[in-house]
């Protein structure tokens, strides 16, 4: 058996026919190492959920193969269903069963008991224990998501698939959730999670950018940031809107995006950010901007993501 927990080779899945056909997953290949926390990052509609369905044996691919813990997702789907935990994007537990009953139900479905896997779920279940008699439908968003994670873990799976587990959850619960995933990894569980939040992406060991059904880049967050091809200047002035317009017209600009109060300007020239900063200062003053602040910064994952997503002739791409 290989060191990989999940291996996908040229996975493809198309929906619809003729003109209405959508290639949801298009020749995707990647590997997830044992005990790794692997992130799938991509915009809505990139094909992340379909990819999860293919990997969890809920859907048969048109072509390509996927192997989970040595089992083929099409041929050995029975074995796969015993060893994986899946948390779909939408909260999908029984709203009219209590926290305890939901857990017991999913444990029984997988031929396990809550007592048997209590140790594994304890770090998460301790948050829920005070509400164990409460109906799942009456839990807060963060609690629901913890319960869903518990239910996905209750049969001690080897691989955990989490489809946007933190969407619609408050920032504190999101942070807690990712910390919990950290403790799960200490137990040796491989985790594949998708997220639209960049600050969560950096918590993964490796991430893959998913776009239009393809994986455009797959590496550690650190390497991805290091490979960012442009020098970046974070720029701020009093009039943010006209600043963005003017920055895009700056001769050395490759492209420019808003990040909160700052505009991130990606420069054509590599390395020479200092000289560019001085030239930019002059250029902006000439355009009548006030309170100008320019700082050279390191690329964040979000910078890499923005550049990726808009590479193929995006609306705000090359100026």
């Amino acid at each position: 058996m290989s060191d990989y927990s999940v291996s996908a080779r040229n996975l493809s899945k198309k929906f619809g026919h003729g003109h209405h056909a959508v290639q949801a997953v298009d020749g995707v290949s990647f590997d997830v190492k044992k005990g790794e926390l692997f992130g799938l990052i991509g915009p809505d509609g990139a094909g992340k959920t379909t990819l999860f369905r293919l990997l969890t044996s809920l859907m048969v691919p048109d072509s390509g193969t996927a192997v989970v813990e040595g089992f083929d997702t099409v041929k050995d789907y029975r074995q796969i269903r015993r060893i994986i935990g899946y948390m779909p994007g939408r909260f999908s537990l029984y709203q009219d069963l209590s926290v305890e009953e939901n857990l017991k139900f999913f444990a029984t479905l997988f031929g396990s008991t809550v007592a048997k896997s209590y140790d594994a779920i304890k770090p998460i279940y301790r948050y829920l224990e005070p509400f164990k008699k409460r109906m799942a439908g009456r839990l807060s968003g963060g609690m629901k998501q913890k319960l869903a994670l518990c239910c996905a873990l209750v049969h001690a799976p080897k691989v955990l698939f989490l489809d946007e587990p933190t969407t619609g959850v408050d920032p504190v619960s999101r942070k807690e959730f990712w910390e919990m995933l950290g403790t799960l990894q200490d137990q040796g569980i491989s985790i594949v999670a998708s997220t639209p939040y960049m600050n969560e992406a950096v918590r993964c060991h490796r991430i893959a950018f998913v776009q239009d059904g393809k994986i455009s880049e797959c590496d550690t967050p650190e390497n991805i940031r290091r490979k960012f091809p442009h020098a970046i200047l974070a720029v701020r002035s009093r009039d943010a809107f006209s600043l963005l317009q003017d920055l895009r017209k700056f001769p050395e600009a490759h492209s420019c995006y808003s990040f909160g109060n700052y505009q991130h300007l990606y420069l054509h020239s590599e390395g020479g950010a200092d000289g560019s900063a001085a030239r930019l200062q002059e250029y902006l003053e000439g355009k009548g901007h006030q309170d100008i602040r320019i700082e050279p910064i390191e690329a964040s994952i979000e910078d890499c993501f923005m550049l990726r997503m808009n590479k193929e002739g995006g609306d705000y791409g090359d100026v």
Binding site: T56, S57, L58, R78, R81, R82, I84, Y86, P88, R90, F91, S92, L93, Y94, Q95, F106, L109, F110, G111, C151
Partner: peptide, 13 residues
């Protein structure tokens, strides 16, 4: 519609 069917489907039941 609720999504619980997907959870059942992914189980060995």
């Amino acid at each position: 519609e609720l999504g619980t069917l997907e959870q059942i489907n992914v189980s060995p039941v």
